[in-house]
Design a protein around this nucleic acid. Sequence first.
DNA 1: CATGAATGAGCATTCATTCAT
DNA 2: TATGAATGAATGCTCATTCAT
Lengths: 198, 198, 198, 198
Amino acid sequence: MSRGNTRQRIQDVALELFSERGYEKTSLREIAEHLGVTKAALYYHFKTKEDIVISLFEDLSRPCDELIAWAREQQPGLETRLEVLRRYSEVLHDAHRLHRFMQENQATMRELSIGESFKERLVELLDIVRLPGADLSDQVRCSAALFTMHAGMFTLQGIEGSQEDKRRAVLEVAQDLLTTAHGRNGERTDAAAAGEPG
Amino acid sequence: MSRGNTRQRIQDVALELFSERGYEKTSLREIAEHLGVTKAALYYHFKTKEDIVISLFEDLSRPCDELIAWAREQQPGLETRLEVLRRYSEVLHDAHRLHRFMQENQATMRELSIGESFKERLVELLDIVRLPGADLSDQVRCSAALFTMHAGMFTLQGIEGSQEDKRRAVLEVAQDLLTTAHGRNGERTDAAAAGEPG
Amino acid sequence: MSRGNTRQRIQDVALELFSERGYEKTSLREIAEHLGVTKAALYYHFKTKEDIVISLFEDLSRPCDELIAWAREQQPGLETRLEVLRRYSEVLHDAHRLHRFMQENQATMRELSIGESFKERLVELLDIVRLPGADLSDQVRCSAALFTMHAGMFTLQGIEGSQEDKRRAVLEVAQDLLTTAHGRNGERTDAAAAGEPG
Amino acid sequence: MSRGNTRQRIQDVALELFSERGYEKTSLREIAEHLGVTKAALYYHFKTKEDIVISLFEDLSRPCDELIAWAREQQPGLETRLEVLRRYSEVLHDAHRLHRFMQENQATMRELSIGESFKERLVELLDIVRLPGADLSDQVRCSAALFTMHAGMFTLQGIEGSQEDKRRAVLEVAQDLLTTAHGRNGERTDAAAAGEPG
DNA sequence: CATGAATGAGCATTCATTCAT
DNA sequence: TATGAATGAATGCTCATTCAT
């Protein structure tokens, strides 16, 4: 029956269950039963339960890292930031199940090794998107741009519209928030951030 | 030693630990040890572990219910909605620990009876704040207004400013989002929501 | 049925099984079953499996420490050493089950925290009993005096004679070994050990 | 890479680990990893884990059997016994790793089939060396002669001197013990042991 | 108001072993 | 000769919960 794809199947089922019922409440027994194998089989493919989660996050980590690297190479400015949001929107969308898992298991994430490493990525993104010298409210706008996208997909559950339409709407609002913040602080702060003299 | 306030102390410690390390990862043994009592003592005051959580949520539920009831009595309109946001901001702030717990244990909340009942309240708030007929992007703005406040306090951790200043900045952004959405859709949709003919 | 003595009963059964079938081969399930309680009950009384062993060793550690302390206060010399052997013989005899456990689970002992701490005691006893400057063969005699007693009780299994008679016979041989070693090296080495000038 | 010597390498690593960390605590996975092969490879060469141990003991069993056979052919008497000790000293020394394993895993040995069969050999050696009708204390001397050699190598760890010097010192003491026992009981008991009438 | 003692169910993990390839 | 994939049974341990005192 299964042929070489068991590892993949474990990841699929694990992600399904982790995001559905939470990491702690999902036991390896459950995962194994869903797959029709023994718990021990899981251990042939992954060294620990946490390892399964880590392997899942590789899908999300790589594109994030690439996005951060790309952003670091660009001129800081509104253009770049808007593009970062656009790309991040896609990254989140591609890994929406995992993203939901993250979103709903924050307390757990904090204890997982991968949690820390992922939080760092988030902080970097925030750093890229934020306007350091700006008003508190504009800083909130920048953060909100990011977190609106995080919360976005689950926020609109009761509303009609295709998944893709929703994504675009969320992105629009996020970009709007950023643009607003920029409109009031942009030039000043970017110059400061770039370390340039007046 | 302490007299009669044990129930209160249990709630304090439980909330502390639940919000710090997550609901599932916090065992009754830990709570008991922090308090210097036996696990059995907890069972004198609460019937189950879940009961402790439920009792914690009463602090947050009552003000929410009152807020919802109050909003239902008002004329729908921007004024009312802005005031709802303002009041909700305070409610969240007063219960910020619990709120953090909610925020970080969403997966767990879904399995807890209180989770459902709290989600309903949220849906009601969303319903009050939202503009049903509006563009998707404006609906996102309305949701984002609410969720920005949810994420707000933890979003701004790395930034200087007093807790109260941050709260106000977050509120300002949330109200802004709502106002923007209104500006474009307001009159039409409110009439519709009120079920009134043109 | 059991009343307050469960902890004691656990220790008894554990020692029985540990010394009979070895530490690793004895599972907590077995111990629990022998007692007619659940595994979890064991954990009420002891924090870990290793903790059970540690508690068992307290019976042996205290008299050993006392013996060492006493010996350190005496004048080094044959008299003292013979008396150390005599007392040690009794200590071992009183804890013969535990002693057998130690004897037969040396590999395990090495991994147990208590193992190290017990080995140190042994080294101290050896140090007390040994003649540092003597011939190799006399040093062997001193060590053998101690280890003969260790091996003694199990060495004589096939032989008729009461337990007490055997103990005394073993002690006699051990003391003999020590006396022989002394006869040839005694005065010289004791002076040296005591750090006295000629 | 290696050709045909895998079986040998398994034995080497197994003995290394068994004697270092104990039989039960050493898993086949560990052995396999140390060798850079799969667990399954071990099963190509040995039917069970116990089989590995058995194969190891063949190195020790053959010389022991030969020693016993030789001794049975000799005239019982001090001469023979001293020679038995001398030869046994060499046998133990040649297989000192295995011997250490035996020494430190007695509890385990008792459960292994090879354990019983090895114990029988020991009993035979004891029988050869012992003086049946003698005082208890002299019987202890005979046993102690054997067991001093068993414990010997590990007894002298803290002491300076070459491995070979120590072996000879231990042998000397063992032979001394036997000679002492003989001196007092020799003639009588040997005649009895040989089943001869006065 | 609280404890001491215990339970039953469950968990993550490990192990020796098997077998088709 | 060996491996890749899996199993079944067990292990040490933790948890929420109960109840007589």
